[in-house]
Design a protein around this nucleic acid. Structure first.
Length: 262
DNA sequence: TTCCAGGACCCTG
DNA sequence: CAGGGTCATGGA
């Protein structure tokens, strides 16, 4: 929940509180179980499970790279490190916010967008503003959310979504066609497109190549730093297997914690 | 103060 | 196509 692909959760002494859709949810870990408490809203347990990414064959995914020493180390260090099943639209906008920005800073931007332009659910919790709302803002207004130069990209992407909701039928496209469509959105390059495919559509083969993953692939797996994006991504898929994107998320976390020799 | 962050975009050569 | 500079913002 705090790993840098969802930006809306806070942790108070083991109690995680966040917004899923128009619901405020609290999560606690008790032994091998997750206890969920819907503070506000009517989200079902199965929807929460789906959001938490629990409807996947976790063991099978992890065992696909069990012969890789870095992945198996990461799996040991982060048991239960799931990729969430988030709303694609929210993933798209939040990862536009993430460009050239730290995870911490991205959280601030997402919180600002929600507080300023979302609907208040209860307490200090707000829905994430929909495309209609964001499309109607001008640059001056959205700058209040401290999104910086990404403001015009967010507005532009929201407006494009209002004309043609590509996200609805993206599932019908193969990876290459989906990426081709996605990079047409302002503020969306190959990396953000991959984040959407991995985190929003759970296409677990996609590896978002950020600065960390590039460093990892170059210094640990022998990739050539001069490889272009697609080439290095294919290289990573070859090294990390069918669920390369899923397991790369473990490596990302290890690297961020300074636990990889890169 | 300077540098960097889960990059994208635009301009040159 | 490759290589650069630029873009807001906050934390280290």
């Amino acid at each position: 929940l705090l790993s840098g692909h969802s930006f809306r959760w806070k942790n108070d002494d083991g109690k995680f509180t966040g917004v899923i859709g128009s619901n405020v949810v609290e999560l606690k870990k008790k032994g091998d179980f997750i206890i969920s408490d819907v503070v506000f809203g009517d989200i079902s347990e199965s929807e929460i499970k789906k959001y938490l990414g629990l409807n996947v064959d976790y063991e099978r995914i992890l065992s696909s790279s069990s012969n890789d020493k870095y992945v198996s180390q990461a799996v040991k260090d982060y048991p239960g490190y799931y990729i969430l099943g988030q709303d694609p639209y929210e993933v798209l906008i939040t990862f536009i916010c993430s460009t050239n920005s730290s995870v911490h800073n991205t959280r601030l931007k997402v919180a600002n967008l929600s507080r300023l332009f979302g609907k208040r659910i209860s307490g200090d919790y707000y829905t994430f503003p929909g495309p209609g709302k964001l499309a109607g803002l001008n640059e001056e207004e959205i700058m209040k959310a401290k999104v910086g130069y990404r403001g015009k990209y967010i507005i532009g992407t929201a407006q494009k979504l209002m004309e043609d909701d590509l996200l609805e039928n993206l599932s019908e496209l193969d990876d290459a066609s989906a990426v081709e469509k996605l990079v047409d959105f302002p503020g969306v390059g190959r990396k953000v497109a991959d984040c959407l495919l991995l985190f929003g559509y759970n296409r677990f083969n996609r590896i978002p190549l950020d600065v960390w993953m590039k460093r990892i692939l170059v210094s640990l797996y022998g990739a050539d730093p001069k490889m272009k994006y697609e080439e290095m991504e294919k290289f990573g898929e070859k090294k990390l297997g069918k669920y390369a994107g899923y397991v790369s998320h473990f490596l990302f976390e290890l690297a961020r914690e300074g636990m990889l020799p890169i």
